[in-house]
Simulated assay, not measured.
Amino acid sequence: MTAEPIAAVFSALAAAATPGRRPVVLVDGGSGSGKSTLARLLVAQWAANRPGEKVSLVRLDDFYPGWDGLEVAARQVTDDLLAPLAAGQPGRWRRWDWTNGAHAEWHSVDPASALVVEGSGALGRASRALATLGVWVELDADERRRRAIARDGEAYEPHWDRWAAQEARFAAREHPDRLADVVIDGRSIAP
Rank of each mutant, 00 (worst) to 15 (best):
G34M: 06
H103R: 11
E154P: 01
G29H: 07
S56E: 14
W163Y: 14
A15P: 02
A15S: 11
E154Q: 12
D181G: 11
P158T: 01
E53N: 10
L85N: 00
A126C: 05
G66F: 06
D61R: 03
F10A: 04
D68A: 14
G91N: 03
A168M: 06
P65W: 04
A102R: 12
D140R: 09
I6W: 11
F170C: 02
L26N: 03
M1K: 05
V116I: 13
L70A: 03
S56A: 15
A164V: 09
P176E: 01
G119A: 09
S11Q: 13
D152I: 11
E71I: 04
P158V: 10
V77S: 01
A104R: 11
W163P: 00
A48H: 13
P191R: 07
I149K: 09
A3F: 12
L115C: 03
E154R: 13
E157P: 00
Q89H: 12
R40H: 14
A129P: 01
P51K: 06
Q76T: 03
A14P: 05
F63M: 06
R144W: 05
P90E: 03
G30F: 15
D140E: 14
A122P: 02
R125E: 06
G101N: 07
R178I: 00
R169P: 00
G153L: 08
H159N: 14
K35L: 11
V58D: 11
I6G: 07
A7C: 08
A150I: 00
Q89N: 12
S56K: 11
Y64H: 08
V55H: 13
S120E: 00
W163D: 01
L13A: 12
R75K: 09
V27Y: 10
G29D: 07
D110I: 10
G69M: 07
A102D: 03
S36G: 14
R144F: 13
E118A: 09
S36Y: 06
E167G: 10
V24Y: 14
G30D: 08
A180T: 03
